[in-house]
Amino acid sequence: MKHLLSAGDLDRDEALLVLETAEKLRELADRPIKKLPTLRGRTIVNLFFEDSTRTRISFEAAAKRLSADVINFSAKGSSVEKGESLKDTALTLEAMGADAVVVRHQSSGAPHRLAHSGWIQSCVVNAGDGSHEHPTQALLDAFTMRRHLGALDGRRVAIVGDVLHSRVARSNVLLLSTLGAEVTLVAPPTLLPVGVERWTCATSYDLDAVLPKTDVVMMLRVQRERMNAAFFPSAREYSRRYGLDAARMAALPEHALVMHPGPMNRGMEISADVADSTRSVIVEQVTNGVAIRMAVLYLLLAGAGSAVDDTVPEQRRGRA
């Protein structure tokens, strides 16, 4: 694996390798000193053309825990805002010797373009591109589900909300079906893309019919602005038909998880009491995100094999 551009790039074995590697790296989070020397001397650039503090700090923490040098390149206030092209930005990073570029871009396919244009030699990790994909989010979601539910074969996952514009939904459909889960997308018809019937998942317009048969319900962020483009009549109507509140949560099986990729619109797609309930693993998703991103960076830059066993934790060398 040279790049991680799409969750569809991972076959079952590769996906499991990432998840199992992350499992080992996750243990680091419970140690007092959370750092491995694995990527010392390697340079990882966080190239963010779109604001996303959450994803950026997650990648930054992951890279730093592997002792990589991290350069944060935010398009805001940079040469990009002055009209520098993606190509020139890429050539600059290449000239600085980046080993991996973690890219977030508002344009679908921009990471693909970076990886395949010949502008740079480094690994490219897609940290979310337009309404295309967000593969590390799907990996951390699967990771979180597995920690609670075990293997995902036959598990039923409902992904609810603005599927049309969601990179999280696309990556999750691809990854979860690779891992054997049965995905149902739930949304008003206006927020499902034309052609969704060809995806490896089911679709439904009726959240109440789906919930009782669901092991995981993943709520997607719905921007209020979408109602101005007539995707739905009002925030209130959306919330009534597709929002997850306590009453709906009660319809879920006992063991079911509530997830959200964040940032949440409390009161819109998810009510505050649901978000803060014991079934919600939303905060844990964030913790797991660091482990997943460590695993991805490790596997891309240090190659296959075990992440932890053949490395020496920093503290044993008496450093921090």
Binding site: S108, G109, D129, G130, S131, H132, E133, R167, R170, P193, V194, G195, V196, E197, R198, W199
Partner: peptide
Amino acid sequence: AQMNEGALSATLGLAGWP
């Protein structure tokens, strides 16, 4: 709109031109 609207535009996350 960025490309023909259909299964492929849905997968690629590009706004469809129906």
